[in-house]
Amino acid sequence: MIDSQLQALISAIEQADSPARLIGAVRALAAARLESGIPTLIQALGYNNPGAAIAAVDGLVQLGVLAVEPLLEQIDGYNYGARAYAIRALAAIADPRALEVLLSAAATDFAPSVRRAAAKGLGSLQWQYLPAQQCIQAQVEALNVLLEVSEDSDWAIRYAAVVGLQGLGESAVAPKILHAVSDRLHQMQLADGDLATQARAKFACDRLAAISNPQLPVYC
């Protein structure tokens, strides 16, 4: 039953003869939330059709942890567009198994869109799924890569590093991590060469300050 449903959804994608039909077919597969549809959704990240790719990312994110291993295995080394979407899906699912891939994508990928998505994703992982000791180590690795990325020459990559640092600061499991994040964000707020990046760093500092000095009861 499920198999025939899957087959119909996949053939609709294979037979789509216009960009709009392709988007519709990918959306239908995404909405079915079938684990067996994951490989086809991942393929759709590389069709050079942004609407289809966004629908596929949504579908993969809905499937959550089930999609993590397939995404890590199928990540596309050649098509940077597909890789950026895969990194966005991994970042949104936020499973810490993606840490290594996010670290290397943020630090060394040649495509700016991939580096931006990875830097942002490094700040939003679900660290609580890691054992305590491993968690500190993982956050330190994320911190070091984000600090390095925050000095990139491309403003948009530094901006993404600020977003990642803010997320890491908000979920820091050790005071030294929060301090390192705050120090760097304050520096960027004052001295980054780009006005928008400075403003983003200011916003991040404000958010971190609000968390450490809440003005309202936290559980209201």
Binding site: A119, K120, A156, A199, R200, F203
Partner: peptide, 12 residues
């Protein structure tokens, strides 16, 4: 400004 920042964050 904060709203625009929120939109930019979604595009990373």
């Amino acid at each position: 400004a904060i709203e625009i920042i929120g939109l930019m964050d979604t595009l990373l």
